[in-house]
Amino acid sequence: MTVILAVAVLVGVLAVATVLGLLLRAKTGRARTTTAPGDAGTVADLAPSTAFGTRATLVQFSTPTCARCPATARHLDSVAARHDGVTRLEIDLAEHPGLASRFNVLQTPTVLLVDGSRTVRTRFGGPPR
């Protein structure tokens, strides 16, 4: 392999990695509307009914090793405090690992916006923006 070919391969790999990184960064933390049927569409069985807000609940899935989860929790608490009937509910996936597959949680934090009837309306993969 010549030096020119090696440099060209290296530049190509760096270009692909950069494009993939930018795409991932653009998608992380963005709201995605969900229309999930079945178990993934409702969160009524995650906690007692008193843990949910009357208007909305911000359900945060986190793990003990998640570096971004404490800051996300503070941010969601401040959002909930500004709106009547909105609460935050944190679910530790280390204690409930089956919920990760049920709600398709691929990263922590993942936040679900749940309406007053406990139906998932929006999800954020990563810290919400």
Results as ranks from 00 to 15, higher is better:
T87F: 06
T72H: 11
S62C: 12
F103K: 08
L46N: 13
T34A: 08
V105P: 00
S62I: 05
L58F: 06
G41L: 04
G116E: 06
H75Q: 14
T35L: 08
R82T: 15
A56G: 05
V7S: 04
V43F: 10
D45E: 11
H83D: 12
V16S: 00
P128G: 05
H75C: 04
P37Q: 10
L10Q: 02
G29C: 01
V13T: 02
L99S: 07
A8F: 04
L106I: 14
A100H: 11
L22V: 01
L20W: 06
G125C: 03
G53P: 12
S62L: 08
H96C: 09
T119A: 13
Q60M: 15
D115E: 05
R121Q: 11
V105L: 04
R32Q: 14
S49W: 07
L93K: 10
I91W: 09
A51H: 12
T42K: 05
V9I: 00
R55Q: 11
A26Q: 00
A51N: 13
F124D: 01
C66G: 11
V7F: 02
N104S: 13
H75F: 14
Q107K: 08
V111K: 01
V111G: 06
T18G: 07
R25L: 00
T72C: 14
A17R: 05
A36G: 08
S78G: 06
Q60W: 04
A56T: 05
